[in-house]
């Protein structure tokens, strides 16, 4: 049995979509008149096309518009991560903060302090010609305290976005 080509298949589909016109349409009609394989393929594609055409527009519930308008001030629910992901993120941030705090109390960062001279840095030495760059003073304890502070702020934001705000919004929505 003769096989139809990809180009013929594509043209059959365009024909069903009503996108073939003029000479291209006439050409396909002529081919359909002489090729039983092409006719058969058209009859295989037609029920699929007819079935999909029944793909009608669905209507939402009658209160749809009211619900949208009522919740406009609420903001979109999906902008927040899921509570599960939020809790995992929160746990990660808290563990990191806890470890930093423990290391800080154990005095791990007490020795890390001093100053860095940019001019003396090996990769930069050859580019620095004038000794005018300032020295940077580093205090390990202070840096870690800042990191812990940032972590705690982050933890609060995660708690608010993933648990507190969605919870209160849901309560407001049910009220």
């Amino acid at each position: 049995m003769e096989k139809i080509t990809d180009s013929q298949e594509a043209r059959l589909q365009d024909f069903l979509d009503g996108k073939l016109e003029g000479a291209a349409l006439q050409e396909l009609k002529q081919e359909l008149g002489t090729s039983t394989a092409l006719q058969q393929r058209l009859e295989e594609l037609r029920p699929v096309h007819e079935f999909l055409k029944k793909n009608s527009i669905q209507s939402p519930s009658t209160q749809f518009v009211d619900r949208v308008i009522r919740n406009l001030s609420r903001g979109a629910l999906t902008t927040y991560p899921s509570p599960k992901n939020g809790l995992m993120l929160l746990a990660g941030v808290m563990v990191a903060s806890g470890m930093l705090a423990m290391m800080l109390t154990a005095g791990t960062f007490d020795q890390i302090s001093g100053s860095i001279s940019i001019e003396q840095m090996e990769p930069l030495k050859k580019y620095v010609t004038t000794p005018s760059l300032p020295q940077i003073n580093i205090n390990g304890k202070l840096v870690m305290n800042i990191l812990i502070g940032i972590n705690l702020v982050l933890a609060f934001i995660v708690l608010d976005r993933t648990i507190l705000r969605p919870f209160f919004q849901r309560r407001a929505g049910h009220a």
Partner: peptide, 28 residues
Amino acid sequence: KSFAFTIALKVLNNRPEAEEAAQDGFIK
């Protein structure tokens, strides 16, 4: 609303979910 709901329905295959997603989309 109808087109929006139909799009959400095609993605989610579930009417209550589609309605909620469409509402959320309108709010966004």
